[in-house]
Simulated assay, not measured.
Amino acid sequence: MKNYFCHSRLFIRLAVVSILVFFTVAGFPADVLAHGVTAGDKGFIQESSGVMIFPFIYLGAKHMVTGYDHLLFLVGVIFFLYRFKDVAVYVSLFALGHTITLLFGTLMQISVNPYLIDAIIGFSIVYKALDNLGAFQRWFGVQPDTRIATMIFGLFHGFGLATKILDYQVSPDGLVTNLIAFNVGVEIGQLLALSVILIAMGFWRRSTRFSRQAYTAQVVLMTAGFLLTGYQLTGYFVA
Rank of each mutant, 00 (worst) to 15 (best):
L59V: 10
L166Y: 02
I121K: 07
F80D: 04
I199E: 05
F54M: 14
L191K: 13
V16K: 05
I199W: 12
D31F: 07
G158W: 04
I152T: 07
I199T: 12
A224P: 06
M64R: 01
L130V: 07
P55D: 10
D31P: 00
G43Q: 13
I120D: 08
L14P: 00
D86Q: 14
Y68K: 11
F54W: 14
I78L: 11
H63A: 04
Y215E: 03
L14T: 07
L103C: 00
Y4M: 09
F136L: 08
G105W: 06
A239G: 15
A88E: 06
L33E: 03
V219E: 14
R9I: 04
I121D: 07
L81P: 01
T177K: 11
A149Y: 01
M52F: 00
G60H: 13
T223G: 13
A181I: 10
L71K: 12
S171V: 03
S195H: 04
F23W: 13
Y236S: 09
L116H: 05
M151P: 00
I117C: 02
L74K: 05
F156I: 12
Y58T: 08
G40E: 12
L233T: 06
K164D: 05
T163V: 09
F136Y: 14
F203A: 10
V220I: 15
L116W: 11
R9A: 07
V186R: 06
S195N: 07
L161F: 15
G202T: 05
I12N: 01
V176T: 11
S171D: 14
I12S: 08
G27R: 06
P144A: 06
